[in-house]
Amino acid sequence: MTRTDSTAPKLDEDDPIKVLFDMASYWATIWGLIAICLWLEHEVLKRLDIESASVRVAILLVSTPAIFLATVTRIQKNPKARLILERARYVVILVAAALLGAYLHANHKDDSYENALRDGAVLSCLKMASCKAAATEYANTR
């Protein structure tokens, strides 16, 4: 009897790293789709010149879940779209990691002792004219 199942090696579903990555990528993809739906609807509402913020919020609260569910239903029915979404999970995780890294880099506060020494040296050097001149000359020749 011939076997019809795939001969590709199967990953162990008990691997906690794989399970964690799968959960994170699915949820990040879902929230990414919701964010895209909200953004697109917001752009449409801006172009329709709806002035009232409460009307905008009401429309967004009603239409976003409807659009999201319609999109998910169509993705589930189309195998090619499902494959694209499975592959897009990795891109979503990479984008989320890049955004998190950029945010952490922008908001990083270095409270180390070396940083305090550097700041103190810069502030004290600004008070001495000869030190400031030497630092400026060093910076200009570098």
Rank of each mutant, 00 (worst) to 15 (best):
H105Q: 12
A133F: 02
A139F: 01
E114S: 06
L83C: 10
R3H: 13
L100T: 14
D110A: 03
L40K: 11
K80I: 12
A88E: 09
V62C: 13
D119Q: 14
K10S: 11
P79Y: 07
P79R: 15
Y26V: 13
A102M: 09
A121D: 03
E86K: 10
S63E: 00
G101T: 14
L99Y: 12
E43Q: 14
L38Q: 06
A102D: 05
Y90Q: 03
A70M: 11
V55R: 12
E114M: 04
L83W: 10
L117F: 00
S52E: 15
A35K: 09
A96S: 04
R3S: 12
A70R: 08
G101D: 13
I93G: 08
R82K: 03
E114W: 01
V19K: 15
E86M: 11
V57Y: 07
M23N: 02
Y138D: 02
A88H: 12
S124M: 11
A116I: 01
A58K: 11
I17H: 05
A88V: 11
A96L: 02
A28C: 05
L48V: 06
H105A: 15
G32N: 01
S130M: 05
R47S: 11
S130K: 11
A66C: 02
R142L: 04
R47E: 12
R47H: 11
L117H: 02
E13K: 12
V92S: 10
K109Y: 05
T2A: 15
A129G: 08
L48E: 04
N78H: 01
A53Y: 07
A53V: 07
E41Y: 01
P79K: 15
D5G: 01
M23H: 02
A8M: 09
V62W: 12
L83T: 13
E43M: 13
L94D: 08
L45P: 01
F68R: 01
D14H: 07
E13A: 14
Y113L: 15
H108K: 14
L40Y: 06
A88G: 12
E43Y: 10
D12I: 04
L85M: 03
L33P: 01
L99F: 14
V19H: 14
L104P: 01
S25T: 08
T73K: 00
D12A: 04
N140V: 04
I34H: 05
D111C: 06
A8L: 14
C131K: 10
S25G: 06
L33Q: 03
K80V: 08
P65R: 06
V44I: 15
L48R: 07
K80D: 07
I36V: 15
T136I: 14
M128Y: 08
Y26P: 00
Y103D: 06
T136C: 09
R82V: 05
D5C: 00
M1K: 08
D110C: 04
G32S: 05
V19A: 15
K109C: 06
W31G: 03
L45C: 00
P16D: 10
A66T: 05
L61C: 14
